[in-house]
């Protein structure tokens, strides 16, 4: 399987191709339903994770809801 590099939360991360956003999150040991993702600057709803493809060089910001004031 071919590998590619994406930038996730500011760090380079290696992933296998082809890869959906959902597969990427699972590979990072994250439950897809527990996070929300900005993919190349665009906020992506969890319902789109399975169909959204990740490509080499993509920038991902993976955030979650936390406690805050």
């Amino acid at each position: 399987m071919e590998n590619m590099t994406v930038i996730a939360n500011g760090r380079e991360v290696q992933v296998g191709l082809p890869c959906s956003l959902e597969e990427f999150l699972v590979a990072q040991a994250l439950r897809p339903r527990s996070v929300v993702v900005e993919h190349n600057g665009e906020a992506v709803a969890p319902s789109e994770f399975a169909t959204r493809k990740v490509k080499a060089g993509d920038r991902l910001e993976i955030v979650k809801i936390v406690a805050g004031g």
Partner: peptide, 12 residues
């Protein structure tokens, strides 16, 4: 009730 957003921890 307020909540915040933070980068997820990718370290597992």
């Amino acid at each position: 009730v307020t909540v915040a957003l933070r980068r997820a921890d990718l370290s597992g």
